[in-house]
Simulated assay, not measured.
Amino acid sequence: MSAHPPRSPLTRLEQEDTTLSTSLVTRDGTVATVTLNRPDRRNALNETLKAALLEALTDVGTDETVRAVVLAAEGQAFCVGQDLAEHADRLSADGPAAAFETVPNHYAPIVEALATMPKPVVAAVNGTCVGAGLGLALACDLRVFAEDATLGTAFTGIGLTCDSGLSATLTRSVGESRARELVLLGKTFTPADAVGWGIAGQIVPRADVHATAARLAADFAAGPTVAFAESKQLIAGALDRSFAATLRAEAEAQDRCGATSDHRDAVNAFIRKSRPTFTGR
């Protein structure tokens, strides 16, 4: 495990133990791993964890020395969604309006940080992943699933509907009809189901989840990160643009990629029949 530069935002994060008591940020070269660290509660999302997670994702997203990110979790579960004990207390003490402030204040910015981060993000789904936990996983670019993980939407089981962007990310992954079924019935499903339906991801033994995700992120970190960022942005907006607008957006993105030293050096490497080295510039 290599140390990161002393002025990196991650240094401040890792040193603030009180802030990050439930979320850990570690570095291995240019890969940052953000780990949900509340295993005794199956990484249920309470106020402390949500605030720490949002801060961690914001910092790694803006840290130019980070070129790829892994979202991981300690324990036997990836994330079971909202901490319902805390939610019940908030409902009782402050009422529904206050209890649901967490949706725009925490869940929305967390998944936006994941989905719009200008670098690849890999979710290491090591176990149960339901509700907002599934929303976190689907906001990432790729997923590595433990073969025995349990997935599900879970919201209607407690009389709620989607948050964490799930109505969009799930629908885009599996189609409208399947998304209706998964949300309305609320039944759990397997990683094999998920991949078969279009939720892209690798399925590996539970013991291999973190290592597989780390290797995938390391491959991304060694790649053309400007091109990755432009590709993410194009794909994210593809369904909302006209075809003509897409062609214009692609041309503009190609101009930006074409101006990078990564592109120039990769073309020269191709001509020389050698392997390119990408620097992210």
Score class of each variant (00 low, 15 high):
1 M>H: 09
3 A>M: 04
4 H>A: 15
8 S>M: 07
8 S>G: 10
10 L>S: 06
10 L>I: 08
11 T>M: 13
12 R>N: 07
13 L>A: 06
16 E>I: 01
19 T>N: 08
19 T>P: 01
20 L>S: 07
22 T>D: 15
24 L>D: 04
26 T>C: 00
26 T>V: 03
27 R>E: 12
30 T>F: 04
32 A>I: 00
33 T>P: 07
34 V>D: 00
35 T>M: 03
37 N>C: 13
41 R>I: 11
44 A>S: 15
45 L>H: 10
46 N>P: 13
47 E>Y: 00
48 T>D: 11
51 A>K: 03
55 E>L: 09
55 E>S: 03
55 E>A: 07
57 L>K: 05
57 L>R: 03
60 V>W: 08
64 E>H: 13
66 V>L: 09
66 V>K: 05
67 R>N: 09
67 R>G: 06
69 V>W: 00
73 A>V: 01
74 E>V: 03
76 Q>V: 09
78 F>K: 04
79 C>S: 10
79 C>F: 01
79 C>R: 00
84 L>E: 13
84 L>K: 12
84 L>D: 14
85 A>G: 14
86 E>D: 11
89 D>F: 12
90 R>H: 01
91 L>T: 09
92 S>H: 14
92 S>R: 13
93 A>H: 08
94 D>N: 02
101 E>W: 04
102 T>F: 07
104 P>D: 10
105 N>Y: 02
107 Y>A: 08
112 E>A: 10
112 E>Y: 06
117 M>R: 01
120 P>V: 10
120 P>R: 07
122 V>T: 03
124 A>K: 07
125 V>M: 02
126 N>G: 07
127 G>E: 05
127 G>H: 05
130 V>M: 14
130 V>Y: 15
132 A>G: 09
133 G>P: 08
134 L>T: 12
135 G>T: 02
135 G>D: 03
136 L>G: 11
140 C>K: 06
140 C>I: 04
141 D>R: 02
144 V>W: 04
147 E>K: 08
149 A>W: 07
154 A>H: 15
154 A>F: 14
166 L>A: 06
166 L>T: 06
170 L>C: 04
174 V>E: 07
174 V>R: 01
179 A>H: 01
180 R>H: 15
181 E>Y: 04
183 V>R: 07
186 G>F: 05
187 K>R: 15
195 V>T: 10
206 R>H: 11
208 D>M: 07
210 H>V: 11
211 A>C: 10
211 A>S: 15
212 T>D: 13
214 A>Q: 15
215 R>P: 10
216 L>K: 08
217 A>C: 03
218 A>W: 06
221 A>Y: 02
224 P>F: 10
226 V>M: 04
227 A>S: 00
230 E>S: 04
230 E>A: 08
233 Q>K: 12
235 I>A: 08
238 A>N: 01
239 L>D: 13
239 L>M: 12
241 R>Q: 12
242 S>C: 05
243 F>G: 04
245 A>W: 11
248 R>E: 15
254 Q>H: 09
254 Q>F: 10
257 C>N: 07
261 S>F: 07
263 H>G: 05
265 D>H: 11
265 D>P: 00
268 N>M: 09
272 R>W: 08
274 S>V: 14
277 T>C: 11
